[in-house]
Amino acid sequence: MRAFTTHHGLVGPMDRANVDTDMIIPKQFLKSIKRSGFGPNLFDELRYLDSGEPGQDCSGRPINPNFALNEKRYNGASILLARSNFGCGSSREHAPWALDGYGFRVVIAPSFADIFYNNCFKNGLLPVVLTEQQVSGLFDELYREQGYQLTVDLTEQTVLMAGGRSYGFEIDEFRKQCLLQGLDEIGLTLKQAPAIKRYEEQRAERHPWVFGAIK
C-alpha cells in the first residue's frame, strides 16, 4: 500500500452532512472488476448534468456549474473538507477508490461512517476527524480565501493552517503505523499464521460444527 506521512495541498469543499457512498460513486460504476478508473465518476450525479455510464469518456459531458468542486478555484484539490457522517451507506470500497482516483489524499470531517473510515486506511487515504466547530471554522476560511491550503501531518497527528495554527487529531496507533510505512496488512496478519492455526485447533475442539460444513 502507498505510504502516507505528510501531505500539503489545496482544499475542496463537500458542504453537506450524511454524504453517502451512492453519492460518492453511483452503483452503475460498481460493475467494474478493476480497482482503478473511478476518479472521473466521483460524485457523478452531482458533478455532471447528464446521467453517467461506465466506460464513458467524461471529458465532453455537461458539467454542473453549481457543484462546488467544479469551480476553477478548487481545481487540483487534494484535501476534501466534508461534514458529519461522511461515507454512510454501503461498504463499497469503490468510494475511497474514487476519491483517490480523483486525487484526494485526505478527507477531513467531524465524523465518518464506520465501514468507509476503515476502507480509507486500506488505500492510503487519510480520514481526519476534527470537531464540528473546527470543521466549520475551516469551511469559513476555505470560502473566504482563494487557493486555501492545508498541511496534514500524520506523524504529528496535526492539521496545520497558515500562520502556524494547528489542530490535533486522534488515530489508532496500528492504523497510523500501517499508513506511515505503507504496510501490507495481509502480510502482517500472515506472520501470525501459527497463532491463527492454534486458535482454529482450540476452536475445532470446542465448536466443531463451525468447520467442514460447506463443501
Binding site: R35, S90, S91, R92, E93, P96, I115, N118, N119, K122, N123, E185, I186, T189
Partner: peptide, 9 residues
C-alpha cells in the same frame, strides 16, 4: 459488512 480489501484479508 467489510470492504474489498478486507474481503481479500
Amino acid at each position: 459488512g467489510i470492504g474489498t480489501s478486507e474481503v481479500e484479508h
